[in-house]
């Protein structure tokens, strides 16, 4: 399949990913590795293709070429078994459901189903994959996930339109956690939250990560989030990952965008706050 040495502790490997829309190239030969049990922050200026990268990994968008391995399964690439064209007809997503049930995704706006209550939203993936679960157990799991995501228990019966922005994010997180994923994709989880709410959300992600042993792929613009919870940070610029490492490693790295990002006024403030 692949002649690179097997990297046992990588839960997600992206190799040589190319993405382009028409003549506009988004990613060119992008490599990224997410280790098991870490929180990887993905940063980059607007339009550098952070969301496109996430959508390529989770199979919402087909990359032009490259290889993607998740949980040691080759999910995308020239010789990947599941990206075979003929078997894709009529499928929701070209990635196998066995793999999909092991990850959870929190979209930027929460993407809750507006006609379902929070509890019903959480039950959607459960019903899809485990139709034999009793209604009683579904209710219990939903209540548990609601509590896990830091929502008050009366929020379970509410509709998304009755929730505040921060609560919607938490409800979205609860739905992402419904299947007890090993890998969590978060697209700007703290965008649009007040600083207190954002800090609480950061803590929540960190707590859940430790309690549930998650690996987290976290797209963010929030420097505080990077300092507070990320183990490593990948910087997207010039159409690929220019640097990946801890904050200290990045601070020592010489790249104009990274310097401006971490050493600008906001970066310094977050650095001081983080210390």
């Amino acid at each position: 399949m692949n002649n690179k040495p097997h990297d046992g502790d990588a839960i997600l490997r992206v190799e040589g990913l190319n993405n382009s829309f028409g003549s506009q190239v988004i990613h060119d030969n992008l490599d990224l590795k997410l280790r098991r049990g870490e929180i990887l922050g993905v940063v980059g200026g607007s339009g550098t293709g952070k969301s496109v990268l996430m959508r390529s990994i989770i199979g919402l968008q087909k990359a032009t070429h490259g290889n993607i391995h998740i949980f040691d399964n080759h999910v995308f690439g020239e010789d990947a078994p599941s990206s075979d064209q003929r078997s894709n007809i009529g499928r929701v997503n070209y990635i196998d459901s066995e793999i999909r049930r092991k990850w959870g995704v929190l979209f930027q706006g929460g993407a809750l189903f507006s006609t379902l209550t929070v509890a019903e939203n959480i039950q959607v993936p459960l019903r899809e994959y485990y139709p034999h679960f009793s209604q009683c157990l579904l209710e219990e799991i939903a209540a548990y996930k609601v509590r896990l995501s830091g929502l008050p228990s009366n929020a379970a019966a509410k509709y998304p339109s009755e929730l505040s922005g921060g609560m919607k994010k938490r409800a979205g997180l609860a739905r992402a956690l419904a299947l007890d994923p090993e890998l969590l994709f978060l697209d700007e989880p703290t965008a649009g939250l007040d600083p207190i709410g954002a800090a609480q959300f950061d803590n929540l992600i960190r707590e859940l990560q430790t309690a549930l042993g998650l690996s987290v792929f976290l797209i963010t613009h929030d420097l505080d989030t990077l300092y507070a919870i990320c183990d490593r940070i990948a910087v997207l610029a010039d159409k690929h990952v220019v640097a990946i490492g801890t904050i200290d490693e990045l601070l020592a790295y010489d790249h104009p965008w990274i310097n401006e990002y971490f050493l600008g006024p906001r970066g310094r403030a977050a650095n001081n706050a983080g210390k």
Binding site: E140, R147, L212
Partner: peptide
């Protein structure tokens, strides 16, 4: 592993699941 998860539960127990 089990103890950690169960401790997590007992720290903030879920309120009674409201019947529909």
């Amino acid at each position: 592993e089990a103890e950690r998860l169960i401790d997590e539960l007992s720290e903030n127990p879920v309120d009674d699941v409201a019947p529909s």
